[in-house]
Design a protein around this nucleic acid. Structure first.
Lengths: 217, 217
DNA sequence: GGGGCAATCCGCCAAAAGGAGGAGGCGCCC
DNA sequence: GGGCGCCTCCTCCTTTTGGCGGATTGCCCC
């Protein structure tokens, strides 16, 4: 038999780590070689111990799991990292998987599923909690379905409308015609948009609009 | 106990259907209520029989599985459809899931996984063959796999470079500084870009650049 | 009933962009 | 060698933006 899989646990709940460790140690082919209680410590341990796989919580003090994940991967690009979290947020999921997590598991999974996932992840497979698959598919359907709260919120309805037209590349005069306004009013709106978005040209405003899906509303 | 789940099988391989049917009928909570050997027949059966779930092959004569899936869903938007195919193509996967398939399973899965998937799919979960999860994640990472041949090709290298800077929202003068050119030269490039792309303002050029991934090359 | 905010307009000004023309140099290909 | 495309730069001109200032109206909320 080959050497056991060397596992690093990163989670700020001591009891959870203890239980998990006991569970994993019962498997002949698994070995917990280290533990960390926050993201920063986790990154350090990952570098020193060179584990085969990391089980990583999201919500932690000092450094959260997302940042820790990114840090670990710059140091060890091929490292298998399984997110193990309570967050069912599709945003968290997408971020972690984009960053390069090998999997995203909810803490409500049963032991067999976890053990299976660990082995599969080390083999290179991507694994997801069943509940999260649908969320990933949803992202596929609307890749830029960014309902994030942004500076966009600070724009008034009229400003958003103006920006939307601006993004089509038309002049203030034409926007004025489209919105049935004086050109001077449009210029005021554009000024406010630039100020609120912290930018300095209508071109940047247009790019912003496109990137936030405001170009074809 | 509740009534069994009513299943429709759609696959052009008779033997495969027979075997699958035998397998499913062994389960007390499952019942195969219909079979079809091509997509068109499958859509017809789905309409008539109103099954709880459809197992649908991709590669079929007369009408392929993708089109059949779309057809079924216009008629019965909430219908659970599990793709059951040999295609490991990420494109097929993405298309089907975007269209609204409840899952995408490879035919190499074992019986337990299939049975479990059927029950989960009917419950509203999305299910994927383990191998396909990674492909879905890959799509998340690069939503626009840039298969473009476009007017972009008609731009000269210098024009593309200019456009790339333009898309950052900076002035001609600044572009000139960045490219170590006279502002007048930049203006010529911009003119050529507008003409070649068939547009009339730098804002439209910037939007075009962003939409074609030329903003951060 | 006053304060805040969105929305609408004005004017003025400097800077930037758009549009037209011409012109020289360079490399490539027939 | 001549033609062609690309890159470079120029002038002259009009239009558009960006960036001030200020003003009025209407609405909501406390």
């Amino acid at each position: 038999m080959t050497t056991p899989l060397r596992i690093l646990l990163v989670d700020d709940h001591t009891l959870f780590r203890s239980g998990l460790k006991a569970l994993l140690q019962r498997q002949a082919d698994l070995e917990v070689i280290g533990e960390a209680a926050d993201g920063l410590e986790g990154v350090k341990q990952a570098t020193q111990l060179q584990p085969d796989i990391v089980l990583l919580d999201l919500d932690m003090p000092v450094m959260n799991g997302r940042d820790a994940l990114a840090q670990m991967l710059v140091g060890q690009p091929g490292l298998a990292v399984l997110m193990l979290t309570v967050s069912e947020d599709g945003e968290d999921l997408a971020e972690c998987m984009k960053t390069g997590a090998r999997g995203y598991l909810l803490k409500n999974i049963n032991a067999d599923f976890l053990l299976d996932s660990i082995r599969r992840a080390v083999d290179g497979d991507s694994v997801l909690s069943p509940e999260m698959t649908a969320k990933l598919v949803a992202r596929l359907r609307a890749p830029v379905a960014a309902p994030r709260h942004s500076e966009l919120d600070s724009l008034t309805p009229r400003e958003r409308e103006t920006l939307s037209h601006l993004a089509r590349g038309i002049s203030n005069k034409e926007i004025a015609r489209a919105l049935d306004l004086a050109e001077s009013t449009v210029k005021v709106h554009v000024q406010n948009i630039l100020r609120k978005l912290g930018i300095s040209s209508r071109v940047q405003a247009a790019v912003y609009a496109v990137e936030h899906g405001l170009d074809k509303p």
